[in-house]
Amino acid sequence: MTKTILAAATAALLASSAAYAADAYQPEPQPVYVDAPEVAVAEASGWYLRGDLGYSFNKLRGADYFQGSNATKVDFATSSIKDSFWLGGGVGYQMNNYLRSDLTFDYLFDSDFTGSTRGSCGVSTACTSRDLTTMRAYTLMANAYIDLGTYAYFTPYIGGGIGGSYVKWDKLRNTSCANSNPSSCDATVEHEGKGSWRFAYQLMAGASIDVTCNVKADVGYRFRHTAGGDMFGYALNGGPGYDKGFTSHSLHAGARYVFGGCETPVAYEPPPELPVYK
């Protein structure tokens, strides 16, 4: 009887120990993995205003005129224009990080012209003239640019544009003097200055510099070709005259103001809570 009671007690103790062990053991929960949110790369876009000031190294491609009658057209013996400053502005749109375009208008300040022609004064006296006038130009251009990536605060770019220039010439003052006696000169003749619209194109290269999130400085180089056109009118058996166009190499500095260039702060989101193991 005693053995039976002892065996029953032992069995009950083992069963309760096994039950306690089963209750006490809890497998470690698996950590919760949360996928990182996708981060979209923001692309710069939006409207901007620009302003530029530059210095242009100008080269006239020549000039010609009708001499004596409209049947005889001859070239100027010499012709050149001076360098000058230019001022411009425009509005543009940044399409993405690599492509933008703008419409610009600029004014080329007075560029002095000096030329000479050779012919006859009176009946048979050979003479040389000295011709003086001034040119200015107003140019409207549609441009496109490729930004070549941003390095720290610098973004180099290349670009090109097409448009038109209104070139305006002042009165041409022509004074002819005898070759044999340069002090013997005819009275100065004035030819009415002409103006005309011409085709123009340009190529650019430079870099923009981030000053603030809205303001970018811009420094660069520009090559422009302007077609020829009317230069001066007829007076005393001379004219009209035409210039053959000109090219210009210019350096400029300016700035662009970008609307909405500053990023909007993102609301803070706390990270997901991790499981706590006890």
Rank of each mutant, 00 (worst) to 15 (best):
Y153A: 13
G46R: 05
S124R: 00
D112L: 07
E273H: 08
V123G: 09
T104S: 14
L203H: 02
S16Y: 04
S56R: 05
S248C: 00
D243V: 01
F232C: 05
D102A: 07
T2M: 02
P240L: 02
Q30E: 15
E190D: 11
T188P: 06
I158Y: 06
N96I: 06
L148V: 04
P182D: 07
V167I: 14
D75K: 12
Y151R: 07
Y151D: 02
W169S: 15
K82R: 15
D186E: 14
A227H: 08
S101L: 03
S120W: 15
Y145L: 05
A63Y: 04
A152P: 00
P275G: 09
V74R: 08
K3Q: 10
D218I: 13
Y138W: 09
L108I: 02
T10I: 09
F246C: 02
R136P: 00
C213F: 08
V41S: 09
M231A: 13
M231C: 02
G164C: 03
Y25G: 00
Y277V: 13
S208Y: 08
S17A: 14
D52Q: 09
A71I: 04
Y107S: 14
C177I: 06
T150R: 12
C213N: 07
S116P: 04
A137T: 12
I146N: 01
L172W: 10
E190L: 01
G261E: 00
G62L: 06
N237C: 09
G239W: 05
T117M: 15
G90F: 00
G233T: 04
D243Y: 10
Y166L: 08
D75R: 10
F109N: 07
V91C: 03
L60M: 14
A15H: 14
Y138S: 06
T128D: 08
G254K: 03
P31I: 06
S248I: 00
V41L: 11
Y221I: 12
I5P: 02
P27E: 13
S196N: 15
M135I: 12
D52L: 12
L49Y: 13
N58C: 12
T134R: 12
G68S: 10
Y221P: 05
L203N: 03
G163H: 15
D210T: 14
D112M: 08
V32H: 01
F109I: 01
A207T: 12
F105M: 13
T78D: 15
S129R: 07
A142C: 00
S101V: 12
Y201G: 05
D112G: 03
S248P: 04
Y153Q: 14
Y151M: 05
Y221S: 01
D218W: 11
F109L: 12
N143S: 11
F246S: 05
Y107L: 12
S79D: 11
G164I: 13
G260D: 06
L132Q: 06
K168Q: 14
V276F: 06
Y242G: 08
G68T: 06
Y25F: 13
F76W: 06
